[in-house]
Design a protein around this nucleic acid. Sequence first.
RNA 1: GGAGAAGUGGCCGAGUUGGCUGAAGGCGCUCGCCUGCUAAGCGAGUGUAGGAGUAAAAACUCCUACCGAGGGUUCGAAUCCCUCCUUCUCCGCCA
Length: 429
Amino acid sequence: MLDIKLIRNQPEMVRERLARRGPAATHSLDELLLLDERRREILVQVEEKRSLRNTVSEEIGRAKKAGEDAEEKIRAMREVSSEIKGLEEQLRAVEEQLEQELLQVPNLPDPTAPEGGEDMSETIASHGDPQTFDFEPRDHVDLGASSDTIDLERAAKVSGARFVYLKDELVFLQFALVQFALRKLAGKGFRPVVPPVLVRDEAMYGTGFFPTDMQQVYHIDSDDLNLVGTAEVPLAAMHMEEVLDESALPVRYVGYSSCFRREAGAAGKDTRGMLRVHQFDKVEMFSFCHPDRSQEEHDFMRSIEEEVFRELGIAYRVVNIAAGDLGAPAAKKYDLEAWIPTQERYREVTSCSNCTDYQARRLRARAKGEQGGPYLVHTLNGTVVAIGRTLIAIMENYQQEDGTVVVPEVLRPFMPEGMTVIGGRSKGE
RNA sequence: GGAGAAGUGGCCGAGUUGGCUGAAGGCGCUCGCCUGCUAAGCGAGUGUAGGAGUAAAAACUCCUACCGAGGGUUCGAAUCCCUCCUUCUCCGCCA
């Protein structure tokens, strides 16, 4: 959410910056300004009347104590109170409308986010060369089927399309990745957390997923809770309505959780395999930091994501997402894309965003130092490993001609003794 | 799931026959005084949000709101009523 005062005081600056997201981002600004003005008009009236009521009510109290008659004042205040009630109702209506509009305005893009839409994102780093094979490489679906470690058919039978059973070595590989990621991040000052994955609407609004991305979220009607699409939500909401101690910043967490996404509107996209599924596990980092340091924190997160894929030995590139392609809460976003041999292109495996004060304002997450009042913190989130997509990248890049997959060196310490290859043993006997 | 109890400021803790109580008292914290040093002692201060004065910022003055959240009763509510949330105790059930 943007600061209404910023919109009020510098509407043209806000308009120009929002326009970089595309025409839809600015259309409610005029109405917003109108509502804001209307709100303050009514507010002044309400407060004047409340002030009057307060002083006269005190007089009534004193008069009664002195045994005097206060009937006339009571009658007058009865009138004032009903006027207040009417004005309060108007105020509530205007504020609700204002809030509704304000919640839908996305964050201001950072000046360093490239101009334009999806195709204008800019490659800013890369590492390694695309993997080549002297045989025809197979995709993860084939590799998973031949080693019987990925079972999409039965998942479809039990849960529907876009679900998956992982089995045997891939299960160990999943938890090896988790261990690898958690240990690395814990060593960099991120506190490990297993968060709740069912959250209240408040957490969804606070992080900016509601109302914009409501159709992406599984909602549990019976208990009015939402399944999170990322640990970002419960990690961010952890400090909702809190004032953090400035000396503790940056407050860093690394969360491990399952993630649930409806993928509404993605029909026909990535239908093969587990690239895009309704449920996957993910290790996610999250920072609450001082407003002056979020840019450097963002680069720090990006460097961690790069480090992970460098150590995994997978070629990647990093793109700076263009303003027109940013999610609503993000001012700036880097995606790390790993080389997927059978698609012969780079695919998004991790992503980190600087949300500046956009989420903090909605969450009322603040910090306070020795002097001065509380101020909004900046929030950042980034993927360390999205298990499904990382498994795909590993399988496809580390495959051998016989359909087996070599376990990357850095993960072996976290695998069962001697398990250095996926597949290759006899199955179902 | 059933039966009870409770939710006040950074913390502890008064306030329950409604009326200068943003809120006694204590602790903590800040500044000043005192003092070989420290401790003790003395004095002053110490919440957040919104709005108006004022045009941007800092500062200041005033007003409004906030005693878990939201409604209601009343001239007036921390105090009375309703709903919700959270915590605790007991019983039952369970990974």
